[in-house]
Amino acid sequence: MDETDDLSWADAWPGDGPELGEIYCLTFIKGVDEAEALRRMGGLPGTVATRAREDVADLHNYDDGYPEVALALPLGTWTVVFEPNGFQGSHLVEVLSRGTEAVSVLRHDYASPSFEYAVDGVLITGFDPTFPTYRHGADPDRLLSRMRDVGFPEDEEDEAVDDPIARCLEVVGDLTGVLPAFDDLAGPLTSAHIETWFVEAHPVQTTRPGHDGPVDALAEVRRLSGLHGLTDTPGLADALAAAERGQAVAVTPDSPLGGHVRAWLTESRRASWAPNDPSARHRQPEAERLRGNGLGWLAKALGAALQPHRAL
């Protein structure tokens, strides 16, 4: 693309002009306002505020618990959720699309960038922008003509793609009729800390660290809550009993149990980020780091236990 293109910022590197960094996610949801878009992303009560991109960066510290933060920008009948240094929208696009449509573009220069388009809970088309000939979803070729129009290659022999994120956003613009300007994303915008644990979605399938084979999530929650002295956590016993009876269990962020889950997840983030944070690595003793890792696993196990299949 020409460097004067309005989307030149999408793939820009520091020093190349306006840029959003090497990791960011833009998720467009149709027919919802900013508050609903953030709620669907797991926006936490009490954290909603007007913030600029720089304010979000300032929150990435030990005292604030390294929260994930999303900003919402209304664009006509759509709202775009911007995650600086984040990627959750790309994983939640099917959930976000329930009753509507959602499309997410993730730039991630060190892992897997993605384009995901979903309608009413079903992924229609998804692909890696750097390998666009390999598509997946219920209708992987639904957007093929649009992809060709913006310059994505027609076959895998011509796989090199210049400005892949900008090209993805051009496809989004064709789908939605709207696109944000760079200055719009700088804010200030309505924002919230997000915690996807509270979003109705299938938990990641995994196994207990150091354990071969599947783990029963209910048993794992009971084991871990006992290990960490948390069996009396308000609401925990009732939630596990209801799940064992096969009843649906919803834990909201502002419920007593939800408040404890939020605290566990914060300690888990501190345990993950502090060792690589020069200003904070001395603040967390090894015992606290290990406990934080355990609390993160407890929260994950609880999320799985409250799902119908209850397997980790």
Results as ranks from 00 to 15, higher is better:
R281I: 02
E19M: 08
A217R: 03
P256Y: 11
Q307A: 13
G46Y: 07
E267F: 01
G137W: 09
D5S: 06
V103L: 11
F28S: 14
D162G: 08
T176N: 08
F82R: 08
S8C: 03
L7V: 02
G258Q: 14
G42M: 07
L73R: 12
A304I: 09
G65H: 00
R39G: 11
G15I: 05
D16S: 14
Y110E: 13
D158G: 13
V178Y: 08
G213W: 13
R281Y: 11
L230S: 03
P18V: 02
E156H: 11
V249Y: 14
L175E: 06
H282R: 10
L185V: 00
V221L: 11
I23W: 06
V93W: 05
P214K: 06
I23D: 12
G292L: 00
I124D: 12
D212Q: 14
D64K: 02
F28Y: 15
D16Y: 06
R53D: 05
F152H: 05
D2N: 15
R40M: 08
R39L: 15
L298C: 08
L295Q: 09
L20R: 04
Y66N: 05
L312T: 15
E68W: 00
Y66Q: 10
V56R: 03
E156F: 12
R148N: 11
G303L: 06
Q284L: 04
S104G: 07
V204D: 14
F87Q: 12
H260C: 09
G258W: 10
L169E: 13
I29H: 04
M147R: 10
D277S: 10
P278K: 07
S90V: 01
Y62M: 01
V119A: 04
A192K: 02
L175T: 08
T125S: 15
F182I: 05
L302C: 12
D120S: 15
G137A: 01
A72H: 01
F87I: 04
V32E: 09
G226M: 14
T47H: 01
T252F: 06
A248R: 15
G246H: 07
P278L: 08
R40S: 11
N276Q: 13
G229Q: 07
L302R: 09
F87R: 13
E159N: 12
E157C: 06
G43H: 01
L185E: 00
T125E: 06
L75T: 07
T231S: 11
V172C: 12
G229M: 08
P234T: 04
L92W: 07
V103E: 01
